[in-house]
């Protein structure tokens, strides 16, 4: 610091005192967060490591074996597929409508569809493309081996709310791309593709990453739609947790559900551990 002491020291104490008081205002919020998020986590952690009154790692070990492990991997695969496809399709769709007359209509529809889920969504698809669904019968899809009740069927149904969600997330970012940037790129001899490669996509990347994480999370946590559609034919961790909660486990193994929940939290944590550095790197130019 090369500042003269006189000018620097005068305002400093006042400012630091004010800052320390301002911090107090966040205490109620932090307390709320601690209770609402912290308490369940404590219970979860506690329960995970207890079996029949004994402290043990057996629940956790069991949650990472056999059908449970298959379900966990299945959930990750489904969520990653939905997140990947949803991000790509949603971004292209948003780009297609962002400057068109359909913009308002598509955004409004997206607002509704992004919140469409659970049993009603499952029923809508079953009635349309299920084994005896309208479209299945009219087009005779059954004879071509069509089934909605497998991994790709579920992916399709999840995309139904994921793509609109992506459209909502990415549209403001697309609005932020100034027309001058594209024109300046053309003016410097770039093709449209080169504009996207060097400018468009890098500028969008922080938003795209955010979208991927959001889509992954919403697919990972989804339960009711899958339960109504596939029962247990597609292994998913949320279905296994529900199963365990409804008593469908060996006596004494109830806390495996808690261990599975902990597994989910760890997966979410790993996703964030990958996401945050990427996000920071891609948004370098913003700081």
């Amino acid at each position: 610091m090369s500042r003269p002491a006189g000018t620097a020291s005068a305002p400093a104490p006042g400012r630091s005192r004010r800052r320390s008081r301002g911090w107090i205002a966040t205490v109620p919020l932090l307390a709320f967060v601690a209770i609402v998020f912290g308490a369940p986590l404590v219970v979860l952690l506690g329960g995970t490591f207890v079996r029949q009154g004994q402290i043990t790692g057996e629940n956790l070990a069991e949650s990472l074996q056999g059908a449970y492990l298959t379900a966990l991997i299945g959930s990750v695969k489904l969520s990653a597929t939905v997140a990947g496809l949803g991000t790509v399709i949603g971004t292209f769709l948003a780009q297609a409508i962002v400057a068109s007359r359909l913009r308002e209509a598509v955004l409004t529809a997206s607002g509704v569809l992004a919140n469409f889920g659970g049993v009603p969504l499952a029923f809508a698809w079953i009635a349309t493309l299920g084994n005896s669904g309208v479209v299945t019968r009219v087009l005779g899809l059954g004879e071509h081996g069509w089934s909605l009740y497998n991994f790709w069927g579920l992916t399709l149904v999840y995309l139904y709310f994921s793509v609109p969600l992506m459209v909502l997330v990415i549209t403001p970012a697309l609005d932020g791309l100034r027309p001058q940037w594209r024109e300046a790129a053309l003016n410097n001899g770039a093709s449209a593709w080169q504009f996207w490669r060097y400018v468009g996509v890098p500028v969008l990347t922080p938003s795209l990453l955010g979208g991927v994480v959001l889509l992954f999370g919403s697919a990972f946590a989804a339960y009711a739609t899958a339960a109504a559609m596939v029962g247990t034919t597609v292994p998913l961790v949320t279905l296994q947790i529900a199963n365990a909660l409804t008593g469908n486990v060996l006596i004494g193994h109830e806390n495996v559900a808690l261990a599975l929940s902990l597994d989910m939290i760890v997966v979410a944590g790993l996703v964030m551990a990958v996401y945050l550095p990427l996000q920071r790197r891609s948004a370098r130019w913003l700081r």
């Binding site: 100034r178 001058q180 940037w181 024109e183 300046a184 790129a185 053309l186 003016n187 410097n188 001899g189 770039a190 093709s191 080169q194 060097y198 400018v199 890098p202 500028v203 130019w285 913003l286």
Partner: peptide, 30 residues
Amino acid sequence: NRRDAGMVFQSYSLFPNLNARDNVAFGLRV
């Protein structure tokens, strides 16, 4: 993109994700 004319816009036309040097070098990179 194949015309021989450089253009300066009214404002905010620099690529925000590239530093000044890479902005200037953009056409050469292409």
